[in-house]
Computed example of a mutant assay.
Amino acid sequence: MTDNTTQSPDASSAIDLVALANDITVGTLGEKLGITFVEAGPERIVATMPVAGNNQPYGLLHGGASVALAETLGSVGAALHAGEGRIAVGLDINATHHRGARSGLVTGTATALSLGRTLASYEVVITDQDGNRLCTSRITCLLRDSAPTAK
């Protein structure tokens, strides 16, 4: 079982990383696609997405929706790794589509390949409800300090 909470160095209260990951995507493409996080941490992050509403004209899961799921997972994982006061921005993403899906939920699992101070890379595997691999993706994010907010 993965621990989906982390201890803040300045507080004794635990932060629910799954709730944080779901909050991060409110009002974004991830929300429009129906992405829901079920496990979250810098090393591994898991989310589901419905096929319905994310398909192409032939009824199959749209490849772009798979890539958007992969980018969402990698970017949120990298942001969790970067920590407070830092942001993650995508530098590179690629995807290989292995098979199609016509219905149900797909699950994306991002596993950290490298977590550094300035870069974070993840492998993302997207599977259908039977565990068949639909897509394999790799994403690299740049980690940088947040821009100061205007007063």
Rank of each mutant, 00 (worst) to 15 (best):
T5R: 02
T5W: 09
T6V: 13
Q7N: 14
Q7Y: 12
S13H: 12
A14S: 15
I15F: 02
D16T: 06
D16L: 07
L17C: 11
V18K: 03
A19S: 12
A21R: 00
N22C: 11
D23S: 12
I24Q: 04
T25P: 00
T25G: 05
T25Q: 14
V26C: 07
G27W: 11
T28V: 05
L29P: 10
L29R: 06
E31G: 13
L33D: 14
G34E: 09
I35K: 12
T36F: 05
F37P: 06
P42M: 06
E43R: 10
R44K: 10
I45E: 02
I45T: 07
V46D: 05
V46T: 08
V46S: 05
T48K: 14
M49R: 08
P50Y: 07
A52D: 12
N54F: 13
N55W: 06
Q56L: 06
P57E: 01
P57M: 06
G63C: 02
G64L: 04
A65C: 00
S66M: 15
S66C: 08
L69A: 02
G77R: 08
A78R: 03
H81R: 08
G83A: 03
V89D: 04
G90L: 07
N94V: 04
H98E: 12
G108Q: 01
L113I: 14
G116W: 10
T118W: 08
E123S: 12
V125G: 00
I126E: 01
T127Q: 13
Q129W: 02
G131H: 06
R138T: 13
I139H: 02
T140F: 01
L142E: 03
L142W: 02
L142T: 01
R144A: 14
S146Y: 03
A147E: 13
P148G: 15
T149N: 12
